[in-house]
Simulated scan of single mutants.
Amino acid sequence: MSQKGFSALIVALVAVVIGWGSLYVVSERERAVQLRFGELVGPNIEPGLHFKFPFVDNIRIFDARLQHLEVPSERFLTLEQKAVIVDSYIKWRIADVASFYKATAGDLYRANTLLSQRAESRLRNKVGGLTLNEVVSGQRDSIMSDITNELDEVARKELGVTVVDVRVKRVDLPPQVSDSVFERMSSEREKEAQEFRSKGQEMAEGIQANADREQRIIQADAYKQAEIIRGNGDAKAAEVYASAYNRDSEFYAFHRSLQAYKQSFSDSGDIMLLEPNNDFFKYLNKKSGN
């Protein structure tokens, strides 16, 4: 290869390297800033294909998607000076790339640290003005909404990021406080349970007394009806006996004597000691057969 051809090849390679180093791409999920000798010249580069001066410009690309930040658990005091441990998280994304770079030098860890500090101070102020019941009650949503708005306003100005949401995952009591709270809750629940048992016992006794009274009334009424039916039956039987007796008194007396004999001599071992002329054997002693 001649000297001229070799020179042309070198020039082509340098042109390719320079051309390759002059182009860069920012995707839809990214944002970038352009630095020239450390000075910010491109504050907010949108997604797409862009040009830069090779070896002069430096491109810093950042993730523009929603970021999740777990805020470390913190111990706060409520309005009644009761300690609570709050566990929370923050959802945020970059809003102004230039402001974000100036505030954090593009360091995501530093951005999370600064956001955590600001969120912690606002949570402390908010919790300090509320009672324990308000902190753990349904008012938590409105509290979190206020904190989100306040933190978003500060974060936009100071860090160039927008805070989408701040949420409390859990509110716990310190271990030394939890035991006493649980004991108090247990005693309160035991007291309520005892009240329910007492009321239930009182109701049970009332129901039992009513049932006993109704039972006695039903039994008395049934006994009354049974006596009436029995009396009516006895009267009817007496009427039948009287009618039978009036039709043929001699036959009636004979039939009654036969029934008495049958009942008296039902067992072969039965013995009766009576005088022979006793009226019981009146019909047995008659020879006429009438």
Rank of each mutant, 00 (worst) to 15 (best):
F182A: 13
S88R: 03
V26S: 10
R60Y: 04
S99M: 11
F196V: 06
V56G: 03
E202Q: 10
M203Q: 12
Q117D: 06
L151T: 05
P54A: 03
Q3T: 09
Y89Q: 11
W92H: 02
K91S: 02
I90W: 00
P72R: 11
V181N: 12
P175T: 10
D152C: 01
L69I: 11
K262N: 12
I45Y: 02
L151K: 03
E205W: 03
P43A: 02
K236I: 08
E227H: 00
I59V: 05
E239Y: 04
N58E: 15
L114A: 04
E250R: 13
E150W: 09
Y261S: 12
E192N: 09
E150Y: 11
S145D: 08
S266Q: 15
V136N: 09
L69G: 00
G42N: 00
V154W: 15
R230T: 01
Q176D: 14
V26K: 10
Q263D: 13
G128W: 05
V97S: 05
A64L: 05
D63W: 03
V56T: 14
F265Y: 12
S249V: 07
V25T: 09
K199W: 05
V164E: 15
V56M: 13
R213C: 03
Y24E: 05
M1L: 12
V25E: 10
N125M: 12
V136F: 09
A209T: 09
R256C: 11
S2T: 13
P276N: 13
D212A: 07
Q225I: 01
D172R: 06
Q225V: 04
Y24D: 00
D87R: 09
R156T: 00
S249P: 05
L115R: 07
R93N: 08
L130I: 05
D212V: 07
F280G: 07
G5Q: 14
R29S: 13
R65W: 08
R75W: 04
D212F: 06
